[in-house]
Each structure stands twice: as C-alpha cells, then as structure tokens.
Amino acid sequence: MSSSSSHTAYGGWLMITSAFAAVIVAAAYAFSIGNGIALTLGTYLVLGSSAVLLVLAMILSATGMGRGLRGLVLALALIDILATALAAYFLLATWLIVLMAIALVGWLIHLFVDSPLHV
C-alpha cells in the first residue's frame, strides 16, 4: 500500500508543467479573436481537458495514494492527453499537440521511471 520513499517525480513535474502550459495555450486559443477557432466549443473543451490534466498531474505527484487510485488517475491522465491531442489536431492547434506530446513523455516517465507502481 505504501509507496517507496525513493521514487522520483520527474514525470509528474513534467506533466504538471506541460499541463499548466497547455491551460495557458488553450486559453489563448479560446479567447484570442482572429485565430479561426476562438470562442468555439472545441477550444473550451481543450481548455477544460487541459485543466483536468493539470489536476490529475498534481494528484499523481502527491504522495500517500494507494496503488489502485494511482492506477486509475494514471489511466485518466492518459485518456485526457490522447483526447486533448486529438481535439487539438482537429482544431489545428499545433502548440497544444506539442504540449500533449510532452505531457505524454511525462506520463511515460512517471509510469516507467518514477511510479511507485513499479517499486
């Protein structure tokens, strides 16, 4: 139940950083008139999903969580990353795709390097 005290948090912090940047970028897409997609449901969606990813990344970086819950949050984060990237692809929101790719790298690091699931 308890996690290893020796695990690192590089992946989690990378996810937090990229998700935070994604929130800012998605907000810019959503409210910057003239970009072709501002004030649309699609941009609100990626803004919301980026914010959710930020919360999920913060939860993952927290300690004291059970394996089952951590696994669930990890799965939700992966779904969030992939769905946001797909939506960004159809929005032609290139920067958001890049940030989701970075978040995915963070997710992989968290899973295979940092994660207490593997210790």
Partner: peptide
C-alpha cells in the same frame, strides 16, 4: 467544414 471549431 468547421464545426465547433474543429476542422473537417
């Protein structure tokens, strides 16, 4: 075509 901001 653009729907909800998404480009088809």
């Amino acid at each position: 075509v653009q729907k909800f901001g998404f480009y088809m």
